[in-house]
C-alpha cells in the first residue's frame, strides 16, 4: 500500500468510523466496546483490500463487511443466550419502564439478526430498498418484506405490552 493509500484510509476512518460503529451497535445489539472490536476486525478486512477498493465506493464495501460481521456476531450471541436461558428463572424479574425508546430498542433486539439489519439500514441509515439489498446481498423484495414484517412485529409486541 502506498503512503497515499494509507492517508486515504485514515481520512476514510475519520469520516466514517463513527457511523459504522453505530451501525454495528444497532445491528448486533452489542455494547459499544464489543462493537468497536467488531468494527476493528471489519476495518482490518477493508484495510487489506484498501488499495483495490478505495476508488470504488469503499463506504458501501465497509458497511457490507461491518453489517455481515454484526449479523454473524448477533447470531452467535443468540445461540449463547438460548443456551444460558434454557431454564427460565423461577421468579419473574421486575422490569422497570424505561420509556418508549427502550421498549423499541428491546423489541428491535428481539428481531432475527438479518431482519434487524434491514430495519437499521432502512430506517436509521436511511438507505433505499435497493441500497439495503445491495448491502445485505439479497433482493429488494426481501428487504421490503423483512422491513414490513419487522415493523409489524415490533408494533404488535408494543401493543401487547400496553396496559389496558
Amino acid at each position: 500500500m502506498t503512503e497515499e493509500d494509507d492517508a486515504a484510509f485514515d481520512e476514510f476512518l475519520a469520516a466514517r468510523s463513527t457511523a459504522l460503529l453505530r451501525t454495528a451497535v444497532l445491528v448486533c445489539g452489542a455494547s459499544p466496546h464489543d462493537a468497536e472490536d467488531l468494527v476493528q476486525g471489519a476495518m482490518e478486512k477493508v484495510y487489506r483490500h484498501w488499495a483495490r477498493i478505495r476508488h470504488d465506493n469503499p463506504e458501501a464495501y465497509a458497511r457490507r463487511v461491518v453489517v455481515n460481521a454484526a449479523i454473524s456476531r448477533s447470531r452467535r450471541k443468540r445461540v449463547l443466550q438460548e443456551i444460558s436461558f434454557a431454564r427460565p428463572p423461577e421468579t419473574a424479574v421486575d422490569t422497570p419502564d424505561h420509556g418508549m425508546r427502550d421498549a423499541l430498542m428491546t423489541e428491535l433486539r428481539k428481531l432475527p439478526a438479518r431482519m434487524r439489519a434491514v430495519i437499521v439500514l432502512r430506517y436509521w441509515e436511511d438507505m433505499s430498498e435497493a441500497e439495503t439489498a445491495a448491502a445485505l446481498g439479497c433482493s429488494a423484495g426481501t428487504v421490503k418484506s423483512q422491513a414490513a414484517r419487522g415493523l409489524a412485529r415490533i408494533r404488535e409486541r408494543l401493543l401487547e405490552g400496553v396496559p389496558v
Binding site: 463513527t18 460503529l21 453505530r22 451497535v25 444497532l26 459499544p32 462493537a35 418508549m100 425508546r101 427502550d102 423499541l104 430498542m105 428491535l108 430495519i119 437499521v120 430506517y123 436509521w124 415493523l151 415490533i154
Partner: peptide
C-alpha cells in the same frame, strides 16, 4: 424507531 436508534447511539 429512527428516533430511538439515533438516541441509543448518540453517545457512541
Amino acid at each position: 424507531l429512527r428516533e430511538a436508534m439515533s438516541e441509543h447511539v448518540a453517545e457512541v
